[in-house]
Every structure is written in structure tokens, then in C-alpha cells.
């Protein structure tokens, strides 16, 4: 934060009175309260979803051929004979104590199944962020500085195309190109034997990371390109130009710091979007992450696993949004004073 703030001050000197730490704290608290409220409403929604099932949850899990005895046993396990409010309380209270229950598919604790997948997905997410964020920021800045020239036109069209095409189509196209029909450079699937780490064969990470990098490139690229163009046309950059300041310094010291706050929002949105993107991409490559786990759980009608996974995704989403809001607030003196 502090590495960027002086640059903002340099470009747009502002009186110290505009920096009010209390306001930032109040906004953070407000956002956290809203986030917790959202998660609470969502947990109600996820719970209510199991209540509106045709028949009931036990019937949905076991299917139509289930014996009455098996149904009875599962209904006891899921507390389906208790009132809905009690069921919700039992579920949410044990979830908050760290006991999300047993998987209906494997009868193992849900947390055991989810935790190793969480680590794998986090690795994927971190690698994609490390590749995609600098790459798309750089491409966006270059495209803005060389507006309407070849690089800008090509990368803008690429961004438009990649943003339009669903991730699984990008993934399959990359598999066709790099791992099967045309070249055989990379493994087409990212299987990881149980108990081993994804790092044992780093090659399996390349295609999933490449797919997701392409998938998130357009959002950050477009946002930083638009805000950079606005900043480059602003009066303070024009002033710097008239003073004879070299291009590099106009871009890095003046335009970029002012174009960054919206880009931080775009990066936040991207990370939140990645959480959804991993579902399809992990499924395509057979990568043992939480997204593939969710698809498996949906196919097996494994309700406790589905509920926990959806809430984890939502929690991540809310957290990322709050973080992005706070960071862009800290980078923007104008918003801080509001």
C-alpha cells in the first residue's frame, strides 16, 4: 500500500486532512457486517434448497428404488423428522464448530474430502493469479499507451474473443492444439494419484493454468486499458507532457497510480470469478480440486458436501470483494474523503 500511496500524492497532492483512518475502519466494518449477513442469507438459501426437494433429501439421495428401512435410517441421520428451524440450527451450529457432517456418498467426514482439494485449488488459483495479473496489467498499459496501433487492436480483439468463449471450449481447444491432435507437448489430463502432491509432475499444471489465465485476461486487460486511456488524456498528464517529461515517467509516475484503483476492483472480481472458473476447468482436466469435487458431489447428490462447498466458495467471494474494496479505497484519496 505505502509503496503506491506516495506516488498518488506526488501526482495529485492532497491535504493531509483527507486521510481519515476512522472512515476506512468504519467502511471495513460495514462491509464485513454486510458480508456476514450475505453469507447468513445464503446459508438459509442453501438450506431451504434441500427443503423444497421433491420428496425429501433422503429420497433425493437414495433415489426411487430405496428401501423404506434405508430411507428411515438416512432421515434419522439427517434429522429430517425434526422441524425445519431445528434442522437448520443443527446444521449451521455444527458447521460453525467445524463439523460439517458426513459425506452421503462415502460416509467420511466432509471436511476430510474437501480440505486436500482446497489446497490443490489454492495452488491453481495462486499460479493463475501470479501469471494472469501481471500479464494482463502489462498488456493493458501497453495497449493504452499505444492506443489504436497494432498491439492494441490485436490484444483487444483477443480479449473480446476469449471473454466470449466458455472456459471449457478454451480448455478443449488447448488440449486439441497442445496435447493431442496437433502437438503432443503436454499431458491432456491433470490426474494426481491420491496421497501425492500436485508438484510431483508440474507439467500437469500448465494447461489448467493457461486456460484460466486466458479466461481472466480480458477483464483486467480491459479495465486497466480504459482507465489508463482516461488517465493519459487527463490534464495532469498533459501538463507533464508540456513540461517535457519523458513518456516512461508520465506513464509510471502519473497515469498508472491513478488508473490502479479500478484495476484493483477488476483483479478482485477476477479472483472471485476464478472461483467459479475452476469448477469447469478442474473438471475438464480431471484436476483434483474443490471444483471437481463439487461436480462429483452434484452427480452423487452428496448434499453435505455440496452445501459446505457452496458456502466456502461464497465465503471466498465475499472476502475477495471486501479486500478489493478496501484496497481500492486506500489507493483513492477522493473515495476516502467521501
Amino acid at each position: 500500500m505505502d509503496s503506491v500511496s506516495p506516488a498518488v500524492g506526488q501526482a495529485l497532492p492532497r491535504p493531509a486532512a483527507h486521510r481519515r483512518p476512522g472512515q476506512v475502519a468504519r467502511l471495513v466494518i460495514r462491509r464485513v457486517v454486510l458480508g456476514v449477513l450475505t453469507l447468513f442469507l445464503l446459508s438459509l438459501l442453501v438450506f431451504a434448497a434441500t427443503q423444497v426437494l421433491p420428496g425429501d433429501a433422503a429420497q433425493a439421495v437414495l433415489g426411487r428404488t430405496a428401501t423404506p428401512a434405508a430411507l428411515h435410517a438416512l432421515r434419522l441421520q439427517l434429522h429430517l423428522y425434526r422441524p425445519a428451524a431445528v434442522q437448520y440450527w443443527l446444521w449451521i451450529s455444527s458447521l460453525l464448530r467445524g463439523h460439517p457432517g458426513l459425506s452421503l456418498a462415502t460416509q467420511q467426514p466432509v471436511w476430510n474430502l474437501v480440505s486436500s482439494r482446497l489446497v490443490n485449488s489454492a495452488v491453481l488459483l495462486a499460479l493463475v493469479s501470479a501469471c494472469a495479473i501481471p500479464l494482463s496489467l502489462l498488456a493493458g498499459v501497453v495497449a493504452a499507451v499505444r492506443r489504436d496501433r497494432a498491439f492494441d487492436n490485436v490484444s483487444s480483439l483477443l480479449a473480446l474473443a476469449v471473454a466470449a468463449v466458455p472456459e471449457f471450449v478454451v480448455a478443449i481447444a488447448l488440449i486439441l492444439l497442445l496435447a493431442s491432435a496437433v502437438f503432443h507437448l503436454l499431458p491432456p489430463v491433470s490426474l494426481v494419484p491420491p496421497g501425492t502432491s500436485v508438484w510431483n509432475r508440474p507439467a500437469i499444471l500448465v494447461l489448467p493454468v493457461l486456460t484460466l489465465t486466458l479466461a481472466v485476461f480480458p477483464y483486467i486487460f480491459r479495465m486497466i486499458r480504459t482507465t489508463m486511456i482516461e488517465a493519459m488524456e487527463s490534464e495532469y498528464v498533459e501538463m507533464a507532457l508540456l513540461k517535457g517529461m519523458p513518456l516512461r515517467r508520465r506513464v509510471l509516475a502519473h497515469a498508472l497510480p491513478n488508473a490502479l484503483p479500478p484495476a484493483v476492483q477488476a483483479v478482485g472480481l477476477t479472483l472471485a470469478y476464478l472461483a467459479g472458473g475452476v469448477v469447469v476447468v478442474e473438471y475438464v482436466f480431471g484436476y483434483p480440486g474443490i471444483g471437481q469435487g463439487l461436480v462429483n458431489a452434484v452427480n452423487a447428490r452428496d448434499l453435505p458436501t455440496i452445501q459446505l462447498t457452496v458456502l466456502l466458495f461464497a465465503g471466498f467471494y465475499v472476502l475477495v470483494n471486501i479486500t478489493a474494496d478496501v484496497i481500492s479505497l486506500l489507493l483513492t484519496p477522493r473515495l476516502r474523503a467521501r
Binding site: 472471485a272 467459479g276 461464497a314
Partner: peptide
């Protein structure tokens, strides 16, 4: 509804 990724 926006707090959950679309596909999820």
C-alpha cells in the same frame, strides 16, 4: 445471488 459464482 451475486455472492455465489454463476456456475455454482
Amino acid at each position: 445471488l451475486l455472492a455465489v459464482p454463476q456456475i455454482i
